[in-house]
Amino acid sequence: MTEPSAALAPAERAVQLLGGDLSEVALRRHLQGLPAVDAVGLEARAAKLGTRSIKTSSKQAALDLIIRMIDLTTLQGADTRGKVRSLVAKALVPDVSDPATPRPAAVCVYGDMVGNAVEALGSAWSAGKDDGINVAAVATAFPAGRASLQVKLQDTRDAVDAGADEIDMVIDRGAFLEGNYGLVFDEIVQTKEACRRADGTYAHLKVILETGELVTYDNVRRASWLSILAGGDFIKTSTGKVQPAATLPVTLLMLQVVRDWERLSGERIGVKPAGGIATAKDAIKYLVTVAETCGEAWLDPHLFRFGASSLLNDVLQQRQKLSTGHYSGPDYVTID
C-alpha cells in the first residue's frame, strides 16, 4: 500500500483543483469532504424523471439520438472474429428496411478483437476523425481489473496500437473500497498515458466505476470525482458483468458530478451507463435525465453514450412502429 502522504502523479485537473504538491492526503480530504448523497431524494428524483411522456416527433428524435449514442457491444468469452464482423455489419446497416437509420457511435469489443473490428469497419471507421464509427476496447484486465499494473497498461497499449479510438478501463474496486484512493488515481493517470498514440494524440478514456460493487451512492460520487480528477474523458457506470448494472439513480448522480465539474472548470465530461438498458422506453428515461440534469448540450454522442447490445434492436422496432403505424416484432431485426 502506498504511504498516505505519497505524492500522486501530477494530473492536470487535480493539480488545478487541489494544488501543486498533489498528495494522497489532499485527494482524500477532497473526496471525503464531498457532501453526502441524499439517497431517498436521489431515487425519488430519478423516478420522477422516468415518468415524463415523450411522444410523436420528440420520440422520433429521441430514438434516432439513442441509436447515435449506442456503443454496440459484444463482450463475451465466446466472441469470435465472425461475431465481431456481424456486430460491425449491424453497426454499418442497423436496419435494412430503412437506409436513413443513423449508425451507432461505436462498437465496443475486447482488446484482442480491435484489429478485426477496424478491418471490418473499413472506410466507415472513424480513425480518430469525427465522422464514422469508433472502435472502443475494454482494457485493464476487464471486467475484474485484478491484474498487475504492467499487465493493465500493456493491455491498454495493445488496444490503442491496434487502432482503438476509445478505451474503457475498469478501476481497482478493491483498492477503492479499502480507501486506497491514491492507487486508483495513479492507475487512471497511467492508463491515460498508455492511451497516448505515436502522433501524440490520445484515445478517449472511459473510466468504469462498476457502481454495483461500490455499495453506496457516496462512493459513486467519490469515484466519479476521482476519475475526473485523474483525467477520465468519460465516466461509465458498469462493466455489464455485475448486477445491479446501470440504474437511473446512479446515472443521475454521475451526471450531477459532471455538471458540477463543468461549473467549476468549464470542461465537459461524458457519462456512459452500461448494462441492463434493453428497451427504448428505458433509454428515453435516461435522455430525459441527461437533459434535465446537465442541459440539452449533453444530448450528444460525445458526452453521453449507452453501453448496450440488445437495446438497438428494441429501438429499431420502435422506429419501425413509428414509420409503419403497426407494431413490429423480433422477426424484423437481426438475431444477435
Binding site: 419501425q320 403505424g325 403497426h326 407494431y327 413490429s328 416484432g329 423480433p330 422477426d331 424484423y332
Partner: peptide, 9 residues
C-alpha cells in the same frame, strides 16, 4: 386492428 397488423402475431 392492432392485433391484425402486429408483425409479431
Amino acid at each position: 386492428p392492432w392485433l391484425a397488423s402486429h408483425a409479431d402475431v
